[in-house]
Design a protein around this nucleic acid. Structure first.
Length: 426
RNA sequence: GGAGAGGUGGCAGAGCUCGGUUUAAUGCGCUGGUCUUGAAAACCAGAGGCGGGGCAACCCGUCCGGGGGUUCGAAUCCCUCCCUCUCCGCCA
């Protein structure tokens, strides 16, 4: 959520910032609501102040056995009017809050202005794109041929956009997950967390999935307001909801390996084959709670932590900055890491690292107390994939394939694979 | 799933029976001060969040788990939801 004060003080600045990301807002609509709210508050509070003054007088008279019917009659009218105005005030407040909650974050000044993914500049490229003396195959083809992947039976069990892994492939996915967790906890100082995979509405609202994107989520309709997490960013970021951290605690760095569930409504026809876009996938997620002065620095470091995994696996990739028009709802700045996929002959997203500034912290009410200060401030929250496990599995299969259809396990993963070096065709 | 108890300010904990000098007692902790070589102790004073108004010192409203209701007036009465604890049952 944006700062209400800023919205009141300089709505034009907010409007201009959001225009850059293609999210127009109606300033007049907001101003009308805000002014109506203030007018109602002024009137309601005048009435309540009178109530508070007269109340003790009624009590005093009753105690003394005196008649108070004149005051009672008058206060009856005041109460009636207060009820009506209070009801209207609640409506206006709810509408204004809802309005604020559906406004996306403002892009940071350093974010390049652009309309779509076409306009995302490449920041750096790492590794050599491998040259094959044969036609490289796609992962669903290779994986299925080696008996590791089965999409048909997955469709029987659950439907489209699901997969089953068997044997070496299941183990490889587990190895990747463990390798990523070990890297983030061992090399980069992250604390490993196992959070709930099901969360409530409040939590989904804190990170920005709700109220605007409910159709992207899986909801447990028979239960209370329960949702399956679309990313561990949601439970990890909300861990400190409604809490005040000590300045000395910052930065707090959590990572978690979790399943992620996405309805993929609206992505019909996109990536219908393979592991790229599933309803259920695994991801290692990193979340930082950072001091506002150091959050953009932290974003660079976090992106580097995600890159490190690909470097150790020797998978070529590039980093791009999302332009203003391509950023997610809560982000102020985002780097995407795209890994090279020979089967598809292109780079595909494998990680997204964002600084959300105080946008989520304000929604979830996550603050810190600067040393020696009585006041609290909102922390800055960052999140990034470190990495998407399923897509990394795709990258390993496609980049490490041999002409005979075998897959050569990357050196770094072999200890996690019981020493296995090559997955041989039968 | 069954039965019972409870959610009050940073923490502990009264108030709820009988709604109105409670602007939520008291203790601890916290901040400033006095005293002291320093610290402790003692004593004095102060202190919250959110919102509205004012140039300002300030003033007002609101907050006793969330929401709703009764009433001139609710921490207190009623309804509802959530959470915690104890006992029983079941269970990886």
């Amino acid at each position: 959520m944006l700062d209400l004060k800023l919205m009141q003080k300089d709505p034009e600045l907010v409007r201009a910032a959001l225009e850059k990301r293609g999210s127009p807002i109606d300033v007049a609509e907001f101003t009308a609501m805000d002014e109506r709210r203030k007018a109602l508050i002024a009137e309601v509070e005048t009435l309540k102040a009178e109530k508070n003054r007269v109340g003790p007088e009624i009590a005093k008279r009753k105690k003394a056995g005196e008649d108070a019917s004149d005051l009672l009659e008058r206060m009856g009218l005041v109460a009636e009017r207060t009820r009506r105005l209070d009801a209207e005030l609640s409506e206006v407040e709810a509408a204004e809050k809802e309005w604020m909650m559906t406004v996306p974050n403002m892009p940071h000044a350093s974010v390049p202005v652009g309309k779509s993914e076409e306009d995302n500049p490449v920041v750096r490229v790492w590794g050599e794109v491998p040259k094959f003396d044969f036609q490289p195959r796609e992962h669903w083809d290779l994986g299925t041929a080696l008996g590791g992947l089965d999409f048909e039976r997955a469709a029987k069990l659950a439907g489209a956009r699901f997969a089953i892994s068997f044997g070496w492939c299941a183990r490889l996915e587990r190895a990747l997950a463990q390798f990523m967790l070990d890297t983030q906890t061992g090399l980069h100082g992250y604390t490993e967390v196992i959070p709930p995979y099901i969360v409530n509405r409040r939590t989904m609202t804190g990170t920005g999935q709700l109220p605007k994107f409910e159709e992207d989520l899986f909801k447990l309709t028979d239960e209370r307001d329960f949702f399956l997490i679309p990313t561990a960013e949601v439970p990890l970021t909300n861990i400190y909801a409604d809490e005040v951290l000590d300045e000395a605690q910052l930065p707090v760095k959590f990572c978690a390996f979790t399943p992620c569930f996405r309805s993929e409504a609206g992505s019909y026809g996109k990536d219908t084959k393979g592991l790229i876009r599933l309803h259920q996938f695994h991801k290692v997620e990193m979340v930082n709670f950072a001091h506002p002065d150091r959050s953009y620095e932290a974003l660079e470091v976090m992106t580097g932590a995600a890159e490190k995994v690909l470097q150790l696996l020797e998978l070529p990739y590039r980093v791009i900055t999302l332009c203003t028009g391509d950023m997610g709802f809560g982000a102020a700045k985002t780097y995407d890491i795209e890994v090279w996929l020979p089967g598809q002959d292109k780079y595909r997203e494998i990680s997204s690292c964002s600084n959300c500034g105080d946008f989520q912290a304000r929604r979830a009410n996550i603050r810190f107390q600067p040393a020696g200060s009585k006041k609290t401030e909102y922390v800055h929250t960052l999140n990034g994939s470190g990495l998407a496990v399923g897509r990394c599995l795709v990258a390993v299969i496609e980049n490490c394939q041999r002409a005979d259809g075998a897959i050569v396990i990357p050196q770094a993963l072999r200890p996690y694979m019981g020493g296995l070096e090559v997955v041989e065709p039968k």
